[in-house]
Structures are given as C-alpha cells and as structure tokens.
Simulated scan of single mutants.
Amino acid sequence: MQTHIPLQTDRDKTSSSGNTSREVQHVFFLKVHKAASSTILNIIYRFGYTRSKNFALPRKRNYIDLVDRGNVIPIPPNNSYDILCNHLQVFSYPKVARIMPQDTVYIAIVREPFERLHSSFEYYRNELHRGYLMKATGTDPFRRYIQNPMSFEPLNPIDSFTNNRMALDFGYPSGNINGAKNVQKFLDHVDSIFDLVLVSDVFDESIILLRRRMKWTMKDVLYIPKNVRVSPLNISFQDYNRSVVDSNILRLDIILYDHFLGKLKREISKAGETFVEEVAYFQTVRHRTQKYCSKTAPPMNLKFPACKWHGRFEVSSKDCWLLVQEETPFLELLRNVQKDRLGLPSQELPKLYDAKKMRLFGKRG
C-alpha cells in the first residue's frame, strides 16, 4: 500500500469551507492545449482528491479515449464518475455525457490565439520535438513558420497542435477546419454544452466566476501557476498579419476566442462592484499563499480569518504540496488512490510528503 497525503477530515472541511452541501460535485473540464489548462487542472485535481471523488482517468499517459472504455480506470460497483478533466483524444459530448452524471457542470478555457500559437509552437517543437515543427529551422524558427504556416502543417489537422487547435479541442470537425463552414452553428452548439468558458488572459476574474458558479471555497480555487514559459516574441506586423489574416491557421480560433471573451466580459459587467472587490481580495490571498509555500517546510499554518467571501481557513504545508504538484505526478497519485479502492495492484510510490526534508518547490514563474 502506497503512502499518500491524508484526505481532509470533515472537521477540516467545515472549518475552511463552511457548508459544503451546495457545492458542485460533478465536473467536466475540457483541457484545451496550451491555454493555462494545467493550472485549472490542479485546482480540479485538488478539489476531487480532498473529497475522495471518482475521477475518469486514463490507464496510461495523460490522454483519455472514451471510445475505448478499457482505457479508463474503473470505479467501485454502484458508483459513478464525478470528475473528468484530462485531455481527450477527441471531444464528443454524447460520449462524455454517457459516463458523467446528468447534473455535471461543463467548463472549458480559451487563450488569445496568437499567443497560444506561439506557446504551442515552442513547446511542441523545442520540448516534444514534433516532426512537422522541427522542419522550421534557422535562427528564428517561429518567424519562419508563420511566414507560410500551411507549408509545415500535417495533412490531417487532428495531428496538429497549431492549426486552429482550440477549435479542434472543442470538437470542430477536422475535415472542415480551414474552410470554417457553419461557424455560427458550431458556436451555438458549444454554448449549449458549456456552462462556463474561462479566458486565460482574464485569469483571476475567470477563477472567481468559476468559484461562484461551482459554489466552491476560496481555498479550493487557490493556485500556483503551472507550465509558465516565457520566451521572446519578436514578430513584425507584417509577419503577424501574414499568419493571422493571410492564412486560415487561426481563423476559427479567433472567432471562438472573441466569442467567449465577449461572453465573459458581459458576465463580469453584470457581477457588479463586489466582483471587482472579490478578485482583488483573491489576488492578495493567492500572493500570500504563494509566498508562504515558497518556504522550506513552514512550521506554522498560514491563517485567514473569516470574511464576507469565506469562512476561516488555513493553508498548511500539505496544502502547499498539493498546490505545487505538476500534472503527471498528481495524475499518478490519483490513479493509485483509485486502484486502492478497487483492491488492484498499484505502482509503489515513494513517501510523497516529508515536511522536514522536502523543499516544497523552487522558483517558479
């Protein structure tokens, strides 16, 4: 039996959360590539882990294939899946709805398309060495790529992480991706499915809208940014214009992004002055938490007194350990927890938490 961090007790939950009976328990999160989705994933992982929820998890790697149910780790009899939040091979609402409860809340995230394109290019070329992107060479490979992106793109758009990838992640048919037919019908379809689409460029506001929609606590939605990579982007207006206007490579993503950015801004404007105050307060709490968690095994908990946005709660070293977890080790932890419930053999893990010996995390962006 592997060692893992103890779950919160009911007493812990009550002191930090107050009444949890109204909180949303069933969640689907569409993990869009390179759109701050790993940070949201950590929030959802922590929520489900501390409440012993059943995750729909892939047996291997971090993609889940709902066509092949054998790819999904089973759960105990007479249970249902509570949370599905890993990358999907292809998003299909009917396939998701088939395994998730009827009261599931559907959320997703989008990012400014050109920034997402650049981030995706850097990651999939320089770290994962995707073949089609490795063909862009020279002193500035990204500039060379966007001067004629379609000359580098794979024939099948589903194999691309740069060609309107957000639209593909939302389920737009790959065969029509560059023709962009029936776009309004597609937007209406997405609107009918998703209860809330976050925008990474308006991140803290998105988090507070998420908190309100899910009726989660302030502690639940604290985060420390994940996968933050900053690389210089020296692009002329001509190059940018060539990529965005002359090529169809971002056409659908721009339409999708503008749609959900406008929708989010309208929700914020309707939320009133208290929303602005809550965002500012949340930023203060988050910054204090990140500073606290940057210490090596802090001896005393960080305490937040009750206020109009939350009951009294504390952040401990254990909480910090969860906050800083990257996707892969957290996923492995969840896999092993769920295998334990089934009595299945699980990979033996090293001791995951030792406050006296373990530096909680290094310098991060």
Score class of each variant (00 low, 15 high):
Met1Ile: 13
Leu7Thr: 07
Thr9Asp: 12
Asp10His: 12
Ser17Glu: 13
Asn19Asp: 13
Thr20Ala: 06
Ser21Gly: 09
Arg22Asn: 14
Glu23Asp: 11
His26Ile: 05
Val27Met: 08
Phe28Thr: 04
Lys34Glu: 03
Ala36Lys: 02
Ser37Ile: 09
Ser38Arg: 05
Ile44Ser: 03
Gly48Glu: 05
Ser52Glu: 13
Leu57Tyr: 05
Pro58His: 11
Lys60Asn: 14
Arg61Pro: 07
Ile64Thr: 03
Ile64Leu: 11
Arg69Tyr: 09
Asn71Lys: 08
Pro77Val: 07
Asn78Cys: 08
Ser80Ile: 13
Ser80Glu: 13
Asp82Ala: 08
Asn86Thr: 15
Leu88Gly: 02
Gln89Phe: 15
Val90Tyr: 05
Val90Phe: 09
Phe91Ser: 07
Tyr93Glu: 09
Lys95Phe: 02
Lys95Cys: 11
Val96Pro: 06
Val96Ser: 01
Arg98Val: 09
Gln102Met: 09
Asp103Lys: 07
Asp103Gly: 11
Thr104Phe: 08
Ile107Trp: 04
Glu112Trp: 04
Glu115His: 05
Tyr123Leu: 13
Tyr124Ile: 08
Asn126Ser: 12
Glu127Ser: 08
Leu128Gln: 10
Ala136Trp: 00
Asp140Trp: 03
Phe142Ser: 00
Arg144Gly: 06
Tyr145Leu: 12
Tyr145Phe: 15
Phe152Val: 02
Phe152Tyr: 03
Phe152Cys: 03
Pro154Leu: 11
Leu155Phe: 09
Pro157Asp: 10
Phe161Cys: 13
Asn164Gln: 05
Phe170Cys: 02
Phe170Ile: 03
Pro173Asn: 05
Asn178Lys: 02
Ala180Phe: 09
Ala180Gln: 07
Ala180Arg: 02
Asp188Arg: 06
His189Tyr: 10
Val190Pro: 03
Asp195Tyr: 04
Leu196Phe: 02
Val202Glu: 01
Asp204Phe: 00
Glu205Lys: 06
Ser206Ala: 08
Arg212His: 00
Ile224Trp: 00
Pro225Tyr: 11
Asn227Cys: 10
Arg229Met: 13
Pro232Val: 07
Gln238Ile: 14
Arg242Val: 12
Ser243Gly: 06
Ser247Gln: 00
Asn248Met: 14
Asn248Pro: 15
Leu250Gln: 06
Arg251Trp: 03
Phe260Arg: 00
Leu261His: 05
Gly262Val: 06
Lys263Trp: 01
Lys270Arg: 08
Lys270Ala: 11
Ala271Met: 12
Gly272His: 10
Phe275Asp: 01
Ala280Ser: 11
His287Asp: 15
Arg288Cys: 11
Arg288Trp: 03
Gln290Asn: 12
Gln290Val: 15
Gln290Thr: 12
Thr296His: 07
Pro298Met: 10
Pro298Ser: 12
Phe304Met: 03
Pro305Ala: 07
Lys308Ile: 12
Trp309Gln: 10
Gly311Pro: 14
Arg312Val: 08
Arg312Asn: 05
Val315Asn: 01
Val315Glu: 01
Val315Lys: 00
Ser316Cys: 04
Lys318Met: 11
Leu322Met: 13
Leu322Pro: 01
Leu323Val: 07
Glu326Gln: 15
Glu327Leu: 15
Glu327Asp: 14
Thr328Glu: 14
Thr328His: 13
Phe330Tyr: 06
Phe330Gln: 13
Phe330Thr: 08
Glu332Thr: 14
Gln338Thr: 04
Asp340Ser: 12
Arg341Tyr: 08
Leu342His: 02
Leu342Lys: 00
Gly343Arg: 04
Pro345Ile: 11
Leu352Tyr: 00
Tyr353Pro: 10
Lys357Phe: 02
Met358Glu: 10
Arg359Gly: 06
Leu360Cys: 02
Phe361Asn: 04
Phe361Tyr: 09
